[in-house]
């Protein structure tokens, strides 16, 4: 149980970073931390005590496997995370070109 809690705490660490950090790159890193905590959570869900990797090989047709579905989901989620992070970084670079800073206190033309 404690490991699930640690996982949740990691999620909250990321959320804290998103809320409190003032640097665009740090915000992106915080989002990545949140993502990893959720990936970890999914892998924990699928874990079976003493299970092996869910690949059927010769001679191990009936071995005890961990649940493969969360792993498949996490693979998808990693791909999505890659795309999100890449787009975020691209926009951050463009913002840096326009505003000349990564500080969100100075990037606030839109208000209200």
């Amino acid at each position: 149980m404690i490991i699930y809690l640690l996982c949740f705490i990691l999620f909250l660490v990321g959320l804290y970073g998103v809320i409190s950090k003032r640097n665009l790159i740090k915000i992106i890193i915080s989002i990545a931390i949140m993502e990893y905590s959720i990936n970890l959570f999914f892998i924990l869900i699928g874990y079976v005590e003493g299970g092996t990797a869910p690949i059927i090989t010769k001679g191990f047709e009936n071995a005890k496997f961990v649940d493969p579905l969360p792993q498949a989901m996490i693979l998808t989620s990693i791909v999505i995370g890659l795309a999100t992070t890449a787009l975020l970084l691209a926009v951050a670079i463009r913002i840096y070109q326009k505003y000349g800073t990564f500080d969100i206190n100075k990037i606030k033309d839109l208000k209200g």
Binding site: L82, A86, I93, Q97
Partner: peptide
């Protein structure tokens, strides 16, 4: 995936 990741990398280099 190979093409996509290489594209992302090259795009960032081009920006820079």
């Amino acid at each position: 995936v190979c093409a996509a990741i290489a594209t992302i990398f090259i795009a960032m280099v081009v920006y820079k």
